[in-house]
Simulated scan of single mutants.
Amino acid sequence: MKDNFSSKSSSYAKYRPTYPQELYQFLKEKLHKTEKAWDCGTGNGQVAGALAKFFKEVQATDISQQQLDNAIRQPNIHYSVQAAEKTNFPDNSFDLITVAQAIHWFNFEAFYKEVARVLKPDGIIAVIGYSLFKSNPETDEVILKFYHDIVGPFWDEERKYLDKKYKTIPFPFIEIESPRFKQEYQWTFTHLIGYLKTWSAVKHYEKANGENPVDLIEEELKATFGAKNKVVFPILFRLGKLAK
């Protein structure tokens, strides 16, 4: 599995969006029990932190120790460096498995085999993420040009799954119908710039060209966005249970 996020892990924790409370409430309503959850590819632990509020125990794993060093701390969250596809958890351990903004990096077949092993028979898997945000029309135009024309060649191949809103990922589970969610913010311009600099394609561009591509659009973006403006993330969400 690629590790695109060990560098600048503190920025990832600071600037990346979170998920709406309505999503977690919906998850709670679908669960049979809330004893033990696994947040896989936990990154900065934001989902693990939310789950810890209603689960007795949360296991949170990532391949990046640097990400875990910057993760949310709660007494009932247990962090460990483990690959998604092979863990040391016992069989039939979890009532819920979550994967947020990470599944596109996994080996699907190996990960789903691990899910089938460690998920309880009545457990649920939730695949969560977000796609490209929207703001005002002028800002959207600048961002789309940046996304496709400037850093477009530097996106990893796996980005296609996010562009397709996770609809094209393999999902060998009985799918549970779910509502649509979104996350809306009033972001400062500083926060927007900080977020853009966490993009993996931005890091790849910077490594290849010796300059940060966000700097190329900063003035134009500030003219359209202003000091503060609306940012809306469409939330990607697929929920499933094991086939009998």
Rank of each mutant, 00 (worst) to 15 (best):
Glu141Leu: 14
Thr61Phe: 06
Lys30Ala: 09
Arg16Thr: 07
Val99Phe: 15
Glu85Thr: 07
Lys36Gly: 00
Leu196Cys: 05
Thr224Gly: 10
Ala37Val: 02
Tyr205Asp: 03
Ser178Thr: 15
Asp149Arg: 09
Leu132Asp: 13
Val127Ile: 15
Asn88His: 12
Asn70Glu: 15
Ser135Leu: 12
Ile176Thr: 14
Arg73Tyr: 14
Gly194Ser: 06
Ala37Trp: 02
Leu27Gln: 01
Glu57Gly: 00
Gln82Tyr: 02
Val151His: 05
Asn229Glu: 08
Ser200Arg: 08
Arg117Tyr: 11
Trp187Thr: 00
Pro213Met: 13
Glu29Thr: 08
Val81Lys: 11
Ala243Trp: 06
Ile125Arg: 01
Phe5Thr: 00
Ser11His: 08
Pro172Asn: 10
Lys230Tyr: 12
Lys8Glu: 11
Trp105Phe: 05
Ile217Ser: 03
Gly49Val: 04
Phe171Met: 03
Gly210Ile: 10
Glu85Tyr: 15
Pro179Asn: 08
Ser11Gly: 03
Ala100Cys: 06
Arg73Val: 15
Ala110Glu: 15
Ala48Phe: 13
Thr87His: 08
Leu221Met: 12
Lys203Leu: 15
Tyr112Gly: 11
Lys222Asp: 02
Lys230Val: 10
Ser64Gly: 06
Glu220Arg: 14
Asp3Val: 05
Ala243Asp: 14
Ala126Asp: 05
Lys53Asn: 10
Ala223Glu: 15
Thr188Lys: 11
Ala84Ile: 06
Gln186Ser: 07
Thr61His: 05
Pro172Phe: 03
Lys53Cys: 01
Thr168Asn: 14
Gly194Arg: 12
Gln59His: 12
Val99Trp: 13
Glu158Tyr: 07
Ile128Ser: 02
Ser131Cys: 04
Glu22Arg: 04
His148Gly: 01
Leu221Phe: 11
Pro75Phe: 14
Ala126Met: 04
Gln66His: 14
Ser135Met: 10
Asp3His: 02
Glu29Arg: 14
Leu236Glu: 10
Leu119Thr: 13
Thr190Gly: 00
Val118Phe: 09
Gly45Asp: 08
Lys197Phe: 07
Val232Phe: 11
Glu109Thr: 09
Phe171Ala: 00
Gln21Gly: 04
Lys113Leu: 11
Ala52Met: 07
His104Arg: 10
Ala227Tyr: 03
Phe106Gln: 00
Glu29Cys: 04
Tyr130Pro: 04
Gly194Gln: 07
Ile174Gly: 01
Pro170His: 09
Asp69Gln: 14
Leu119Ile: 10
Phe106Cys: 04
Val151Pro: 00
Val47His: 08
Ser135Ala: 14
Phe54Val: 04
Ile174Ser: 08
Glu219Ile: 12
Asp95Phe: 09
Lys120Met: 02
Phe146Leu: 08
Ser131Val: 02
Ser80Gln: 11
Ile72Tyr: 13
Gln66Val: 03
Arg238Leu: 13
Lys230Ile: 12
Val232Thr: 14
Thr98Glu: 01
Ser10Asp: 13
Phe225Pro: 05
Gln66Leu: 12
Gly240Trp: 12
Ile143Lys: 03
Val81Ser: 03
Val118Glu: 03
